[in-house]
Design a protein around this nucleic acid. Structure first.
Length: 501
DNA sequence: TCAGCTAACACATTTGAACGGT
DNA sequence: AACCGTTCAAATGTGTTAGCTG
């Protein structure tokens, strides 16, 4: 376990940490989390061996709790605990990310979203599409999407509902998806909707295509990250700032075959590629009846499978499955404790989508970020953090892993400079208007009550700013909560604010 | 026996090259 | 020669299905 580099670093780390944790305390209601003890541990060099795991676990539990409580947007501090804590200071920001197709996601979420994962890779539907605001129009940013386990459970679909069936598979290093148009200027990102439609999910742990690897029958939470490109460079992540946005309605279960027929129907109704199955209720029902027990399909009166206004699906389809929607198990259920923290961090392997025919030059050292804090700790304690030695090549020809706390040496070989990923002219190629989504009425999902934990180097003001509940009651759930944990180098000087206008 | 996985399939959209007209 | 719009085939994205596996 590496230590905080300097007393200044420690001090400033505390300054940055305190508000973040302080803010989480209310969300961690009922959680046995000793804030003071953890901060004290952080401040000393006698931290327990599993300190970072605990901290990260608490952080991710906090995120999970916040999500479960209905906050639609948060900044996690997972990054901060994924490795040796960078010294820096907390800073508020104005970046906001909203889920563009929230209505569609809500429809799926209400039932219990499932995503097919295949050996060759499968796209997500709905696609995660976001509107971004508050960026510096002239500054370049890297947009990243990753998927973290929502808990450490394995699930099964039984009696029309998802239930925990055991412990999750051992965590594998996850990959992140860097938007192919990265880096792009704030102006470009904000000009139109940013779509992550190119991302593919696979269950093939030997995948060489750079797809995001997931386990079937496990629950995942997508997260979007905004990273200033200037920080996505040598030493960047150590001093840089991350902005992480979690949309709870995008949580889904990875499956190799659809379990809930209502999800199947919803996909068919909304995905243009599945138009061929619209109106083919009989086949769908046949499939459903084949897969499901009689109990699952008994009384079918009164439940509409189709969203309001849908013109597809026969009437008989709408009469299927009266059973209550198979919601995901309550994360607050005390039985299997949520444990997102075991995933470690945020970033796993960086992946870039490419076509099978595209050649790859392994010398083009794609930037990558190591995943788990466990791994972080291990590598940090066993590997000199030199520029070259930290580039840990994986078996994948173009996916390298690199401890995040030693992200270096990427200036000349950064993915950002890869010719295949050079910025493209607008209109933003990352946005591919969904031919079927024009019918979706956009309702801004981000929170008008966007709360920031503002930076202050003074404990009192920190406590003030980070009063436990920000004045938000449960009635405010649904409003966005932002807990930013942005660390910057250069202590003790404050970084200049973005020249926003 | 059965839950979960895989690959082939039909049907859909997307993509980009080829072509012709201006 | 450059630009634009149309056409069309290949590539790719879907859910379904039968069969396989542990």
């Amino acid at each position: 376990m590496t230590s905080v580099e300097s007393p200044e670093g420690q001090l400033n780390t505390r300054a940055g940490l305190a508000p973040a944790l302080g803010c989480t305390s209310s969300i961690l209601q009922g959680q046995d989390f000793d804030f003071d003890r953890h901060v004290d541990s952080l401040m000393s060099y006698n931290r327990p061996p599993n300190f970072y795991e605990e901290m990260h676990g608490a952080a991710t539990t906090m995120a999970s709790q916040a999500v479960q409580s209905g906050y639609s947007q948060i900044h996690t501090m997972a990054f901060g605990f994924s490795s040796s804590l960078p010294h820096g200071q907390l800073r508020s920001d104005t970046i906001e990310v909203e889920l563009e197709n929230k209505d569609l996601w809500d429809k799926f979420h209400e039932i219990g979203t499932e995503m097919i994962i295949t050996k060759t890779g499968r796209r997500m539907f709905p696609v995660i599409r976001v509107n971004i605001s508050g960026l510096n129009p002239k500054e370049e940013y890297v947009l990243v999407l990753d998927l973290i386990p929502a808990d450490d459970n394995r699930y099964k679909f039984h009696n029309s509902e998802w239930s925990v069936t055991g412990k999750a598979e051992p965590l594998m290093p996850t990959r992140i998806f860097v938007h192919p148009d990265s880096p792009g200027t704030g102006s470009q990102w904000m000009r139109q909707v940013v779509s992550f439609q190119k991302m593919k999910l696979t269950n093939n742990h030997m995948d060489q295509m750079g797809h995001v690897i997931l386990n079937s029958m496990h629950k995942y939470q997508p997260r979007a990250h905004v990273i200033p490109a200037k920080d996505y460079s040598p030493y960047g992540l150590r001093k840089g700032s991350f902005y992480t946005f979690v949309f709870p309605e995008t949580q889904f279960m990875g499956v190799t075959a659809y379990q809930n027929p209502r999800i199947t129907q919803l996909k068919i109704e909304n995905n243009p590629f599945a138009k061929g199955f619209r109106g083919s209720c009989n086949s769908t029902m046949h499939h459903i009846m084949k897969r499901k027990s009689p109990d699952d399909c008994r009384d079918t009166d009164g439940l509409s499978l189709s969203p309001a206004g849908s013109t597809s699906s026969g009437e008989s389809c709408k009469r299927a499955f009266q059973d209550s929607p198979p919601k995901f198990p309550d994360i607050n259920d005390p039985s299997p404790p949520p444990m997102m923290g075991h995933t470690g961090s945020a970033f796993g392997h960086v992946m870039f989508p490419r076509r099978p025919s595209e050649s790859f030059d392994s010398s083009c050292a794609f930037a990558s970020l190591q995943n788990s804090c466990r791994q972080q700790s291990l590598s940090a304690s066993t590997t000199p953090l030199t520029t070259s030695s930290t580039l840990n090549l994986t078996p994948h020809p173009y996916v390298h892993s690199l401890p995040m706390n030693s992200l270096t040496s990427l200036s000349n070989t950064s993915a950002l400079s890869h010719p295949c990923h050079a910025p493209r002219p607008l209109p933003h190629p990352g946005y591919m208007g969904h031919p079927n989504e024009h019918t979706i009425h956009h309702t801004p999902s981000h929170l008008s009550a966007h709360v920031h934990s503002t930076l202050s180097g003074y404990p009192d003001s920190l406590r003030q700013d980070c009063r436990p509940d920000y004045g938000l009651g449960r009635g405010d759930f649904g409003k966005p909560l932002t807990i930013s944990t942005t660390f910057h180098a250069g202590f003790p000087g404050n970084p200049p604010p973005y020249p926003f206008h």
